[in-house]
Write a protein that binds this DNA or RNA. Structure first.
Ligand code: NAD
Ligand code: NAD
Lengths: 265, 265
DNA sequence: ATGTCTTTGTGAACGCGTGCACAAAGATGG
DNA sequence: CCATCTTTGTGCACGCGTTCACAAAGACAT
């Protein structure tokens, strides 16, 4: 059969690459700071430096939004702030529910960055009856029995999951069934959702593990040539006698192996 | 996903593409769950489903680590758990400091996922004298005056920043100067660091804005064209006129209460 | 052993994202 | 009005990441 074009289903609707979308909030933040300092215009070079990206990339990103710059001058800060805000949908109010008001959920509830960009905490939801009615960050916690009602009444389309991982999928299912179509997941689980629902995850554990990988590589690079691991001032704190990082065969044990006595992270 | 990167183009990391590294923790989590259920082996298809990725991608990822599978059978769960752990550097102990023990920092300090994979909270650091000595999650908070000493004594190479955005860069500078070479940043700021230091960021606000973008697109898919144009015209007249220089400092008005001229989100 | 069946490991094609380099556009000054 | 200078917008090439598709490898039964 014609191996060809029957690929991408949708989501690729014309315009604005995903990578660009992910950078727009970054530009917006830098532009907002400039706006507060009453800076009228900014060049791609300056703004790119502030946002920590390549200036050509920034210009190309903006070109997807239209031609909002003036050659020889740069971009009008105020105008660009508005255009990006509009493109991101921040000119409207987004009610958000947070489910799971534990340590993390409570911190999120009180987070200023939530309210600052058109996101409004519409409700805090927890399954613990002892929490019900208790105000967290000035907002009374509601019981999860009322989840569907809350979402429907407030027209919530964005949900934040901060429950334990074990119940995240069922919480997710209820949110989706109730009409939520965007989910930000803090629980360390892979959520499965129907088409048309977006899920983004924030996973502390994964970030740390990625850092550890590079950290290990840095440490191993100094004592690279041979095994002169004597100089590891930093990593010398390692307590375990890790498998000598030799060739692949150096596994300390076979299939029986040591599971590093851990829980699902 | 939340990925901040200050990237080195130099891909001499002995293979293993960055995208693969980012997925290894995901595989590891799924494998650990299988291990706890005493599942001996798993096929790429099953594991890929559990991790939410394409099976061919998973096999290719594993191929960078070596040939740990058995054709016709699959992968040995225990063995793979060990190999990935070793590759990620999780077979050794990583002391971590958390700087900024506010709402978020406290939640992080008590987070189980920290300790579960070889990461150990070596110290909690805060600039508020009132916090000093106060135990958070069982760990006494230390004053930031002692930051350098703590890092040096414990051989800390990974730091977590959970301070307000305004001080994040200077905290970062101190951490780096003291010897930290990997930073996980929760503050909504672009951190600049010297070569050799890795920074990853977790940015709630950005994630929400990305969700809002897609959410808006979903909503606007039914009735888009004209509303868009109308808003555009209205805006052009409201904002576009040559910027009154000093005047913009106070309030700007847009169609609806508009872009909050608030703190960096 | 030999055949069959399952699943790995990877070659190859393709699409996306990135960054260079430069022409065009417009501002600014004479 | 013309010359010069600044900065945008983008064509283009390149490399990374993803996915398909399939031969080879090995398990297992006979
Ligand atoms: N604390 C952190 O720093 C941190 C960091 C990263 C990820 N996480 C993840 O975030 C999640 C929450 O972490 P935490 O430290 O706040 O845990 P927590 O135990 O303090 O809070 C969990 C809350 O969820 C509630 N809950 C349980 N089941 C529920 C349900 N079915 N519906 C609604 N609410 C329910 C509980 O009553 C509790 O209040 C966990 O999955 C954790 O792995 C936490
Ligand atoms: N709370 C959240 O859910 C959340 C979510 C995403 C991002 N953030 C970001 O994380 C950071 C912390 O958020 P928070 O809600 O915990 O704020 P917070 O105000 O509760 O805590 C900040 C803490 O940092 C300490 N601090 C200030 N300056 C310091 C310094 N120089 N050295 C060491 N410590 C210092 C303060 O004493 C305070 O305890 C902020 O940048 C915030 O934008 C928070």
């Amino acid at each position: 059969m014609a191996t060809g074009r029957t690929h991408r289903p949708a989501t690729r609707s014309r315009g604005i690459p995903e990578a660009t979308v992910a950078r727009l909030p970054l530009y917006l933040r830098a532009l907002t700071a400039l706006s507060e300092r009453s800076v009228p215009t900014v060049s791609s070079e300056e703004l790119a430096a502030a946002a920590g990206v390549n200036s050509a990339k920034l210009r190309k990103d903006f070109s997807y939004l239209g031609s909002y710059g003036t050659r020889g001058v740069g971009y009008d800060v105020e105008y660009l702030v508005y255009q990006i805000s509009r493109e991101l949908g921040l000119t409207q109010d987004w009610p958000v529910v947070i489910v799971g008001i534990g340590n993390l959920g409570a911190a999120l509830a009180g987070y200023g960055g939530f309210a600052s960009r058109g996101f409004r905490v519409a409700a805090l939801i927890d399954a613990d009856p002892a929490m019900t009615g208790k105000p967290v960050a000035g907002i009374p916690v509601q019981h999860s029995d009322d989840l569907e009602k809350i979402i429907e009444e407030d027209g919530v389309s964005i949900g934040v999951i901060a429950t334990p991982a074990g119940v995240a999928q069922q919480v997710c299912d209820r949110l989706v069934a109730a009409g939520v179509t965007s989910i930000l997941n803090f629980a360390p689980t892979v959520l499965s959702v129907p088409d048309g629902v977006d899920v983004r995850k924030v996973d502390l554990s994964i970030e740390l593990q990625i850092l550890a990988f590079h950290e290990q590589r840095k440490a191993g690079e100094e004592s690279n040539a041979e095994a002169d691991a004597a100089v590891d001032a930093e990593t010398a704190t390692a307590v375990a006698p890790p498998a000598p990082r030799g060739a692949t065969g150096g596994s300390r044990k076979g299939p029986d192996g040591d599971v590093p006595a851990v829980m699902p992270a």
